[in-house]
Write a protein that binds this DNA or RNA. Sequence first.
DNA 1: TAAATACATGTTATTAATTACATGTTTGGA
DNA 2: TCCAAACATGTAATTAATAACATGTATTTA
Lengths: 181, 181
Amino acid sequence: MAQRNILQFIILGLLDQQPRTGYELTQAFDSDIGEFWSAKHSQIYPQLSKLETAQQVTHHEEVSGEKLVRKRYALTTTGKTTLENWLSADTEPVVGGGKDEFAVKLYFIQRPDDPRLVQMLTKQGAFHKQKLTHLQEQMTLKFPAGASQHDFGHYLVLDHAIRREKAYTEWLKAALTACEK
Amino acid sequence: MAQRNILQFIILGLLDQQPRTGYELTQAFDSDIGEFWSAKHSQIYPQLSKLETAQQVTHHEEVSGEKLVRKRYALTTTGKTTLENWLSADTEPVVGGGKDEFAVKLYFIQRPDDPRLVQMLTKQGAFHKQKLTHLQEQMTLKFPAGASQHDFGHYLVLDHAIRREKAYTEWLKAALTACEK
DNA sequence: TAAATACATGTTATTAATTACATGTTTGGA
DNA sequence: TCCAAACATGTAATTAATAACATGTATTTA
């Protein structure tokens, strides 16, 4: 893509929650936030450098063990301002709702009796059902009492992800029904 | 990103439906298929050239009016085979469910009483509700009798898009309720 | 104690995608 | 008949993102 470098703001947001290392930032994209954004370490480390050059973040070095040096990054006041500005700015809704190779494939399979359809739908269904289960487990684990006062954003995105996966599995189920009759 | 050049297969799929010009392919991404994939003409024209070099497509020239030359592309048998192979191949489900700047923003707004929340949720809600309505109109327009034998894939992705937008609006509504109490 | 795995940080090469540049034609309406 | 909008096709510059390259440390476990 060629977005407006949203990654930088996400990094600022994560560092606002708590100071983190590049490694920890990378890990963050493997958990909840990964449902709605992703980035590899090869994108994160250079971005951290740029943010530091731009005075948005600073780091201090931590030594663990004998020689391992870890760089823990934190927001500067400038960085905090940048983050707040982004959070307060209008978010233009993305028109095309993301990319979905599977959906596109189905688009090109015209006939409901295509021999490949059932297997395709079943397989994807299994995957998304499993993912849904995992997300629901996360929810009961992290928010056993429902929406919380602190961590409200976290609750919202988890709920979002669950609803999305639910809708996805239901779509697959309906599709399966529609092509079996 | 750096996908496995899925665009090429989508172009093949679109050309399999009917021969098209680069311009018409571009337009295709503004309609239904645009819900699950997008591409600009600056990506399409070069890709068409590559596909032609690779013998996947051919074109013939049409003259309209005095001098305007249109290139209408069609699949070769090789191209048809490539397409079928792609359609038959396993589709690995994408782990991270796409990117959503709005969702990420909410993630960083911890407090449910944040003064920005209501406006944000309301605004996005209006957009997605409108989009949902538009999609539902498309559905009743194109498939007044429900799922069709021909054009089944088209029906599926429309249904998919509708369910997605419905889930999105319901999430926003629930979020609004949750942060207002 | 050896090996495997996780921790940790970077760079390089390549691909995917958008934005902007560039040019011209056709059609329909004011 | 002029003008705007849609039609039509390309290229160039830049950015975003992934995959692969590269290297080394710390911890756990067999």
